[in-house]
Design a protein around this nucleic acid. Structure first.
Lengths: 191, 191
DNA sequence: ACAATACGAATGAACGTTCGTTTGCAAAGA
DNA sequence: TCTTTGCAAACGAACGTTCATTCGTATTGT
């Protein structure tokens, strides 16, 4: 029950940040080691490999998103409220898990097989579940859109600007930003 | 006036595609050479360096965006129509200059100084010009009152899903997609 | 209490590989 | 003839990773 983080945790967090800032291929183990005050060789006392870091970060986040999607899907919210809930999820993840979500969003393509295929499948599952909610919303007359797929991708992209623009040193009033962004998106949704 | 493309053009196009697919650091000169049916050493008869490729792609696109922004800004369109025109620009670039725009959007961070600073400045200039139009639109009562910065970033991100999801082999009806996307965004904007 | 042992953690050195790029030279085109 | 284009070979540098070793600190046996 110590308050200090284990070296392994420190490495994972530093890796997530570096993957976010420089990208996975441009992040060297020597640079990562420097970030946690170690030599490169010492990293391997705590982790398996460079790709292990990326893989764990990616799949941990995929799991979080999928779990939340399942919860929302099975809830008794209205379709529009379900979409709102998912928007909330993305914005919350964007602010609270800032670094790892970026790796999850952008760097997964550097995974090697068979993990790459596995991850892509999880991503497709998520999009399919999200899409289903949108489609039901349209069918129920709660959501305005012609092509659900276009709407989905637009939503997912629109919610990604937080990852790209929010920096830790530039705090912004994240709550008001989130509220405003959600408002904008929902306004585009409703009939 | 030959119809065939010069080797240099082929290299630049292949580079843009590889930067888009694998990212700049993960793209090797040997791989690039293979894509244009050459050996790595032969590339240097046509280009200066790997970074030259990235730099030219980034700044060429920056110039295009800024020129168009200037044209739109100085036009006598209404503020909302100006925003629409810029949305159109982004969507058109996304479909017609697919590969190079991606490099322009994601890979510029791998530029080294002083080019990196120069590029960031151009990007800020563009955002500032876009922001000004939004602010004026709000002031004129044409655009729903909101934090202009949030609006801007949301717009820019929303328009980026085309880069990420549209693949050449999966054509989609780009016109209808563009129309729907623009509609969604404008709907979120108007009062 | 004290020596022996085990172990987590850190390190410098080196491994094989790949990187971007340069060089020297041959073939082809003008 | 002189420029352009291509290629094999080689370059130093950096890459991820492994290895043998060391240092401290617990744990064990007596």
């Amino acid at each position: 029950m110590t308050a200090i983080k284990t070296k392994k945790q420190q490495i994972y967090e530093a890796a997530a940040r570096l993957f976010r800032d420089k990208g996975y291929p441009a992040t060297s183990m020597r640079h990562l080691a420097e970030a946690v005050d170690l030599k490169a060789s010492s990293l391997y006392n705590h982790i398996g490999s460079k790709e292990d870091l990326l893989r764990d970060i990616c799949f941990e986040n995929a799991h979080k998103f999928l779990t939340h999607l399942k919860t929302v899907s099975e809830s008794d919210l209205s379709h529009l409220e379900k979409v709102k809930a998912l928007i909330e999820l993305h914005l919350t993840m964007a602010t609270e898990e800032l670094t790892s979500v970026t790796a999850f969003n952008d760097e997964w393509r550097h995974l090697s097989e068979p993990w790459l295929s596995d991850f892509v499948q999880l991503r497709k599952d998520y999009e399919k579940g999200f899409l289903k909610i949108i489609q039901e919303g349209i069918q129920a007359g709660e959501i305005q859109a012609a092509d659900p797929q276009t709407l989905l991708y637009t939503l997912l992209s629109a919610m990604r600007w937080l990852y790209d623009w929010v920096k830790p040193d530039k705090p912004m009033a994240t709550d008001s930003v989130k509220q405003e962004l959600a408002g904008f998106l929902v306004r585009g949704l409703v009939k």
